[in-house]
Design a protein around this nucleic acid. Structure first.
Lengths: 239, 239
DNA sequence: ATGAAAAGTGCCAAATTTTGGCACCATTTA
DNA sequence: TAAATGGTGCCAAAATTTGGCACTTTTCAT
């Protein structure tokens, strides 16, 4: 039996039986007592928490909390998870963000370095704050599911983005802008973009954006986005 | 160099260099040509797509599409990720929830079946809604980081939970309750629990709970929790 | 108290796996 | 045609893993 297979068999048997002695495990996996002892050490090194009680009536016990899973994820999925957790943490009061962060850190470590760079650049464009309690949230629409892939590409390649925008008064306009940042004030999401036609920053509520697409052509340059409450108070954002 | 480390080094070098010959790889990782050839076979077995061109100007090339991340996560971390995404989606307007869901589905598939059962039971206890816009959110505190592991264990094993609670008027009480569900009205989180002393359900704001710990002893029974807005209007929740 | 049952450690030789070297084949291109 | 490249089979050397043994410590039942 392969060493890896044996480790798996030991974990499975420990899960099933609750408490097991080393000799029982050795018989189960067809290895010697000494080898099983070494396997236990290896498993502990891998992060499995295995309690042991010496003496009569003792044995080994696997802490089910320490069970680990191995998943293969596409890079885009990791992006989505990261953004979810970042946004959730920023929404405040996510009791479990510490654990989620730890999980994502592990995932991030397995990504190729340039992907991590991309990811950080994208997350840098993400600014999360708290909406003022006075904000009226009665008319939130849903966000075009096509937005993520388009946004991601536009942000990472710094390409112009074209879309339809419906403002609070129901007017519809056609925009072509340089996406600079995303502002999340849960549950509202804003795109912060430089509008070359107006030579100024504009904030777009993402649930009012439709038919987004990328304009192939020259790359725009990254600008410093003023997120300061004084310079750009949240109350001045589009409703 | 470890065999596993060497495999990683080969993949990294292939990513960096685009095309590489076996001899170059061998020099890079400090192994023989023969060993690298064996490693390539092993990597292909693992699912990496490695194109090869024989002849002058040929070499090996890694298909970047075949790159996926593999991460080992603790079950608690998966829980945390799931809750984050579930809560974020429920908060509405998470543009990327589709992808995040797909990623989590993959992770879930790798969990042992009884863990999936636990997880579903835990998520069943999770009810997410929208807070009324009128809610005053000025005094939200932070949540005790010790809460997740304690809650998770209490929920899954159906054990009594004891904690200190500070109510809106600043009074502090000591509670021992049966945790039945969690109600998320972002950014507020509530614990819905049966209070045996008062023979009734109580809602506790999670940021007002401190020093949680589990009471070992008899398991409580699961109750039907009324989430209906009519039966238990959100406006009646503790402020 | 004592003995049995259990975890845990150190060491060494045997067993097994991994590695390197070699000869050789197939394919491509200058 | 010759050189450069991937690829295979085989064997002995090198490295790693395994089993066995002697030993320690802890716990529990008698």
């Amino acid at each position: 039996m392969n060493i890896r297979t044996r480790h798996d068999a030991i974990v499975r048997h420990l899960r099933r039986s609750g408490t097991a002695t080393i000799d029982a495990l050795a018989a189960e996996v067809g290895a010697s007592r000494r080898t099983v002892l070494r396997d236990i050490v290896a498993l502990r090194d891998q992060g499995f928490v295995i309690h042991s009680e010496p003496g009569r009536g003792g044995g080994l016990q696997l802490d089910p909390q320490s069970m680990q899973t191995t998943a293969r994820l596409a890079v885009a999925e990791v992006f989505a998870l990261l953004i979810s957790v970042a946004a959730m943490r920023a929404a405040g009061h996510l009791p479990f963000s510490g654990l989620a962060d730890a999980g994502l850190a592990k995932i991030e470590k397995t990504l190729p370095p340039e992907k991590v760079r991309d990811l950080r650049r994208f997350l840098d464009c993400l600014h999360v704050g708290k909406l003022s309690p006075a904000q009226d949230l009665s008319d939130i629409g849903s966000i075009d599911p096509d937005l993520l892939p388009t946004f991601e590409a536009a942000f990472l390649d710094r390409l112009h983005l074209r879309f339809h925008y419906h403002d609070a008064k129901g007017r519809q306009t056609r925009r072509e802008v340089e996406p600079q940042a995303m502002l999340i004030l849960p549950p509202l999401w804003y795109l912060v973009a430089w509008d070359p036609a107006r030579a100024d920053f504009r904030h777009f509520r993402m649930d009012r954006i439709s038919k987004p697409n990328i304009v192939d052509g020259t790359k725009f340059r990254q600008r410093h986005v003023p997120f300061d409450e004084d310079v750009c108070p949240y109350s001045s954002l589009p409703r």
